[in-house]
């Protein structure tokens, strides 16, 4: 028995596509090997974290480890992005500059 391939989009949300592209771009740029990436990612998956959350956590971990993106800085900036979203009307692209204060 055979069945036709089910059409599937690889991403359920734009941020998943974005973190995928970000990771591939960083590896292309030589910041880490894909092998190192899969080990970090696999470790998060093995800990039972969901697929895309594990992806983000693994990338954050690698970038924190090499000092490029300290977790505090990521959290502070994530909060700024959230503020910018709150200050942006629907239908308009969210821009960091729109964060109040």
């Amino acid at each position: 028995m055979t069945r036709p391939d089910t059409p599937e989009t690889p991403f359920d949300a734009p941020w998943q596509a974005q973190v995928f592209g970000l990771t591939v771009a960083l590896s292309d740029g030589g910041l880490f090997t894909w092998d190192a990436w899969t080990r970090a990612f696999g470790a998060r998956l093995a800990a039972g974290v969901g697929y895309w959350d594990a992806w983000v956590q693994a990338l954050e971990g690698m970038l924190a480890q090499c000092g490029i993106a300290p977790p505090d800085e990521v959290t502070a900036l994530a909060n700024r992005w959230q503020d910018a979203a709150h200050a942006t009307p629907h239908g308009v692209a969210i821009r960091l500059e729109n964060a109040p204060g």
Partner: peptide
């Protein structure tokens, strides 16, 4: 004193945006 809308980012979305901004 700023306009407030009910746009809300998924927390992971916000973190990915933060990473991309830093990088």
């Amino acid at each position: 004193d700023h306009p407030h809308h009910d746009n809300h980012l998924d927390p992971m979305d916000a973190r990915v945006r933060a990473l991309e901004t830093i990088l």
